[in-house]
């Protein structure tokens, strides 16, 4: 055990002296990365709006902000990975059905869901 500790100290010492291998990245962002950052901020803002409005607005209003998160996230994925469908026919079908699902979901945007909107006093 003592030998193992000594070996670790001997090997780790010089390695530490070489400086850290991983450091904070200071490489300028590409257009795609900047877009992704903007999308993350937009999704966070929608999430915060949904959180802070909880209990103050109708459930369907709060849910609408959650739907924005899905819409913005879905669009970002389309932008970032949409090019994939042009090389993969099956992915094209997958994308079409995902988009239909998205449209169907958005069709329920700000609508009272079945089962009642308990906080909606109207």
């Amino acid at each position: 055990m003592t030998r193992a500790v000594l070996l670790f100290v001997l090997l780790a010492g010089p390695a530490a002296a070489q400086g850290p291998e991983f450091t904070v990245s200071r490489v300028p962002l590409t257009g795609r990365e900047t877009f992704l950052a903007v999308v993350i901020v937009a999704m966070m803002l929608c999430g915060l709006a949904s959180f802070f409005l909880s209990g103050r607005v109708a459930a369907r209003t709060q849910t609408a902000f959650a739907m924005f998160v899905v819409l913005i996230g879905g669009f970002a994925l389309l932008v970032l990975f949409g090019g994939f469908i042009y090389d993969h026919p099956l992915a094209a079908i997958g994308l079409l059905f995902l988009l239909i699902g998205l449209f169907k979901l958005m069709n329920q945007f700000e609508s009272a869901r079945r089962g009642g909107d308990r906080t909606d006093g109207r």
């Binding site: 877009f35 903007v38 937009a42 709006a49 607005v57 209003t61 609408a64 902000f65 924005f68 819409l71 913005i72 669009f75 945007f109 700000e110 109207r122």
Partner: peptide
């Protein structure tokens, strides 16, 4: 007022998409 997110927030989301 009946659809506040659609009436007041949606235009800004789409404006963001236009800007992007």
């Amino acid at each position: 007022r009946q659809f506040p997110v659609t009436a007041y927030a949606l235009p800004f989301v789409l404006l963001g998409a236009v800007a992007a």
